[in-house]
Amino acid sequence: MRTAKEIVEYVAELSRIKLDEDETEKMIKELGEVIEYMDILQGLDTEGVEPMSHVFPITNVMREDEVTPSFEREDILRNAPERTDETLVVPKTIE
């Protein structure tokens, strides 16, 4: 059984969010309260109930593979935090 601290640190890592000591303590407390509250669902009999993600049936939408104009490169790059004239800039990913 993992401790609450280990769980919070684990999901923070999965979420790509860094928490300092104080934030970790706060999240342990607040997430603990919410999860305890959500545990009320454990008391409900859901045996044999099919999980439902959408209230209307959702089906795959197919379309012809046609070439249509997309955004201008400059319109997309305008929002980039770091860029060159033609592309996004990211830190070195392969040594």
């Binding site: 979420s15 969010i17 934030e23 919410v34």
Partner: peptide, 19 residues
């Protein structure tokens, strides 16, 4: 993400990742 998101958003992302 740590600097850009506020506390409530971080909390819900962590909660969602947990569930």
């Amino acid at each position: 993400r740590s600097e850009g998101f506020g506390d409530e958003v971080k909390k819900r992302i962590l909660l969602g990742t947990f569930v």
